[in-house]
Amino acid sequence: MHALSIAWDPSKGLDLGIFTLHYYSVMWIIAFVLGLQIMKRIYKKENQSDAALDSLFIYAVIGIMLGARLGHVLFYQRELISEDFFSIFLPFKFKGGFEFTGFMGLASHGAAIAMIISMYIYNKKVLHKTVLWILDRVVIPVASGAVFVRVGNFINSEIIGKPTGTDYGVVFKQLGEDFARHPAQLYEAGSYIFVFLALWYFYWKTEKSEQEGFLFGLFLVLLWSIRFVVEFFKEPQGDEYLTIGTLNTGQLLSIPFVLIGLYFMFAHKPKAKTA
Score class of each variant (00 low, 15 high):
Gln48Met: 15
Lys205Tyr: 12
Val170Lys: 07
Gly238Gln: 03
Tyr263Trp: 12
Val73Asp: 01
Lys95Asn: 09
Gly217Arg: 02
Pro256Val: 04
Glu177Tyr: 13
Ser144Gln: 11
Lys273Phe: 02
Val73Leu: 01
Leu215His: 12
Gln37Leu: 15
Phe154Gly: 06
Phe100Val: 12
Phe154Trp: 08
Phe232Arg: 00
Leu56Asp: 08
Leu220Ser: 05
Lys124Pro: 06
Asn153Val: 06
Phe233Thr: 10
Gly71Ala: 05
Met265Lys: 01
Val258Arg: 00
Val138Trp: 08
Lys162Gln: 14
Leu253Gly: 00
Tyr59Pro: 06
Gly96Gln: 13
Tyr203Thr: 06
Leu247Val: 01
Leu53Arg: 12
Gly169Glu: 06
Leu220Asn: 14
Asp239Phe: 10
Val73Gly: 01
Leu218Phe: 10
Lys125Trp: 05
Ala111Lys: 05
Pro256Met: 03
Pro256Trp: 09
Pro236Gly: 05
Pro10Ala: 09
Ser49Ile: 04
Leu135Asp: 06
Gln251Phe: 02
Phe194Arg: 01
Arg137Gln: 07
Ile18Leu: 15
Gly145Thr: 10
Val26Ala: 10
Lys271Met: 10
His2Lys: 13
Glu158Met: 13
Lys269Asn: 05
Gly152Pro: 03
Phe228Glu: 00
Ala52Glu: 13
Ser225Lys: 00
Asp9Asn: 15
Ile81Lys: 00
Leu90Asn: 09
Gly245Val: 02
Ala52Arg: 11
Leu53Glu: 11
Phe219His: 09
Ser157Asn: 14
